[in-house]
Design a protein around this nucleic acid. Structure first.
Length: 152
DNA sequence: GCCAACGTTGGC
DNA sequence: GCCAACGTTGGC
């Protein structure tokens, strides 16, 4: 799950302990929230548009997706006048802070790893702020992350 | 339903 | 700031 640290980063999540991951206005992501997210799922936190893009930690999904309240709030930048409460267009999920890596798993490192070659988030032109990670990819990422800790 | 124009994203 | 790449929009 991708976010710009200048907007909301891993340190913000660590401080808040948990947050509503909303404001996503993309139908593919909406569908993933709706169909693929389950309580207890784990997710990687990715920093984009920053000095060192990469995976900076992990979090846990706290429950099923629910209507993103911001879509009904005219004051919100995520307001969607076409959305109706009886058929909400956009969803959000609650996530809980789990871990912050001592240093980011940099985009460079991720790109160099053959086992991560087909990860969607690394694909050129990827537009999705939430992308699936396979079991095998997750294992590789977690072991790379474990390696980071040692270098402290 | 097509498709060009447009806006946004994100790495560099 | 640039630019490639994509999703969305809207005219037809």
């Amino acid at each position: 799950m991708k976010s710009e640290p200048s907007v909301y980063g891993i340190d913000d999540l660590r401080r808040d302990r948990r947050t509503s991951w909303g404001g996503v206005r993309n139908y593919q992501v909406r569908n993933m929230f709706r169909d693929d997210f389950a309580t207890g799922d784990r997710a990687f936190f990715y920093h984009s548009s920053c000095e060192e893009p990469g995976i900076v930690g992990t979090m846990k999904v706290l429950g099923k997706a629910y209507p993103d309240p911001a879509q009904f709030d005219p004051e919100s930048e995520y307001f969607d006048p076409r959305s109706r409460p009886e058929s909400p267009a956009w969803l959000a999920v609650d996530v809980q802070f789990q871990r912050r890596y001592p240093q980011p798993l940099s985009l460079d490192v991720l790109r160099r790893h053959p086992a991560l070659e087909s990860m969607l988030i690394l694909r050129r032109g990827n537009r999705l702020s939430v992308t699936p990670v396979t079991e095998a990819e997750a294992r590789v990422l977690l072991s790379l992350a474990a390696g980071l800790a040692g270098r402290g």
